[in-house]
Design a protein around this nucleic acid. Structure first.
Lengths: 141, 141
DNA sequence: CGGAGTCGGTTGCAAAACTCAACTGACTCA
DNA sequence: TGAGTCAGTTGAGTTTTGCAACCGACTCCG
């Protein structure tokens, strides 16, 4: 659903509060027809919702749905990765807690052991939705 | 760098331990020439490393570099999102702590307040690498 | 009233990316 | 000798993008 060159960038802008067609087009440098198409697809997938913000003429803005907001951890993780590995530790933006302004940490934690878990200490296990042979099942996300 | 239909899927497989050309091709259903191209690009970007696992004939496998391993939080976040919103709460795999087997939680935390932070309580702020006008800077990730 | 500007798109065409299927080359195993 | 495995490459054909121009509804200015 979001595996193309633009969808993730559009969503990042959506999180930053960029919601209007022309704002997105100008900020991303995306072709307008593609932007129209991507927005429509994101709306179809229920990640964004299109709502009018004025009548006469009707103008729309694209906001994140609950499903879209839930992508936050993924976007945040990608952003931090980019900051670290592409830009070399001098991030153009940092995420902070709105109450106290402290830069945030993202961690995977074990509620049992009450500690952070490193990637190497992660195991995967079949869950309730597992099927017999996951091979060749057509995927789309 | 990873904004295409396959790179994220290849990386997911890499995390699961799928490292060989034919394994990846069979598991993903990707065209072989594209797989070759994507692997090469991921190697060029330093996300994967290509190393021989046998001589006579020389055969290579693709492993995650440190930079690649650092993508873990992003992949994990996307996986959890997919489980929740596409499959409706019956995940085919769950991530567990290898020591105790407990399913893991992913959170954004404020080290100052020592509590989890919801997406709505996140603010962004210019960081040390900020530039005057971030508009129209060509991006590639 | 006329003309310029804004916003949110659509249309058309060339260029790039992707899919599919077949082929290669080095080697192993029976 | 012949079949099979692995890691690709090659080529033809289809689909998706990128770019630029255009459109329609409306507002604002004089």
């Amino acid at each position: 659903m979001i595996g193309d060159r633009w969808s993730l960038l559009i969503l990042r802008d959506a999180f930053r509060g960029v919601r209007r067609f022309d704002e997105l087009a100008a900020d991303l440098g995306i072709a307008r027809n593609l932007l129209a198409d991507r927005l429509q697809k994101l709306v179809d997938h229920g990640i964004l919702v299109k709502q009018p913000y004025q009548q006469r003429p009707v103008r729309y803005e694209y906001r994140l749905s609950a499903k879209g907001v839930d992508l936050s951890p993924a976007l945040v993780a990608l952003m931090r990765w980019g900051d670290k590995h592409i830009l070399g530790e001098s991030p153009p933006v940092v995420l902070v807690h709105d109450r106290c302004g402290t830069p945030l940490e993202q961690t995977l934690t074990c509620p049992q052991c009450a500690e952070a878990v490193t990637p190497r200490a992660i195991k995967s296990r079949p869950g309730p939705g597992a099927v017999r042979s996951p091979k060749n099942t057509r995927r789309s996300a």
